Amino acid sequence: MAKLYFFYASMNAGKSTTLLQADFNYRERGMATMLWTAALDGRGVDSAIESRIGLGADAYRFDGDTDLWDRVSAAHAVEPLACVLIDEAQFLSPGQVWQCARLADEANIPVLCYGLRTDFRGELFPGSAVLLGIADALVELKAVCHCGRKATMNLRVDESGGAVRRGAQTEIGGNERYVALCRRHFREALAR
Rank of each mutant, 00 (worst) to 15 (best):
F6A: 08
A22T: 13
T37N: 13
A9H: 06
N12Q: 13
D23H: 05
T18L: 10
R27F: 01
Q21R: 09
D23N: 11
K15W: 09
E28L: 05
L35M: 09
T33Q: 09
F24W: 05
F7C: 15
R29L: 10
A32W: 02
F24D: 04
S16P: 09
N12F: 15
A9W: 06
F6Y: 15
T17I: 04
A38P: 02
A13C: 07
W36Q: 10
G30M: 12
M11H: 15
T18C: 12
W36P: 04
A32E: 15
A38Q: 11
N25I: 05
T33D: 04
A22N: 07
T18F: 08
L35V: 03
T33R: 10
R29V: 00
E28Y: 06
L20D: 02
A38L: 05
Y26C: 04
N12C: 12
Q21P: 00
Y8F: 15
T17N: 13
N25Q: 10
F7E: 14
L35R: 07
F7K: 15
A38G: 09
S10L: 00
Q21E: 08
T18I: 02
M11Q: 14
F7G: 08
M34P: 01
T18M: 13
R27T: 09
K15N: 12
F6T: 07
L20Y: 00
G14P: 07
Q21G: 02
S16A: 13
S16E: 08
G14V: 07
S16I: 05
Y8W: 13
A9V: 05
D23L: 03
K15H: 10
A13M: 08
M34Q: 14
A13Y: 03
L35H: 02
M11P: 14
N12W: 12
Y26D: 00
G30Y: 06
F24E: 04
Q21I: 03
D23M: 10
N25S: 09
N25D: 05
S10T: 11
A9L: 06
T37F: 01
E28C: 03
R29G: 07
F6G: 07
K15A: 10
T18Q: 10
R29W: 01
Y26V: 00
A13N: 08
F6Q: 12
G14N: 05
A9E: 11
S16C: 07
S10N: 04
A38F: 08
R27C: 05
N12S: 15
W36R: 06
F7T: 14
F6R: 13
T18E: 15
N25F: 02
R27Q: 12
M34C: 11
A32I: 01
Y8C: 10
L35C: 02
S10P: 05
M34R: 11
M31R: 15
W36T: 04
A13F: 04
Y26Q: 06
F24I: 01
A22K: 12
L20E: 00
Q21C: 05
G14Y: 05
M11N: 14
T33K: 07
L20T: 02
T18R: 13
F7P: 04
F7M: 15
M34V: 12
T37P: 03
A32F: 04
T17Y: 10
F24N: 07
L20N: 00
F7Q: 15
G14W: 06
K15P: 08
D23C: 11
A22S: 11
A13W: 02
M11F: 14
T33I: 06
R29Y: 05
T37G: 11
R29I: 01
M34I: 10
Y26N: 01
L35I: 03
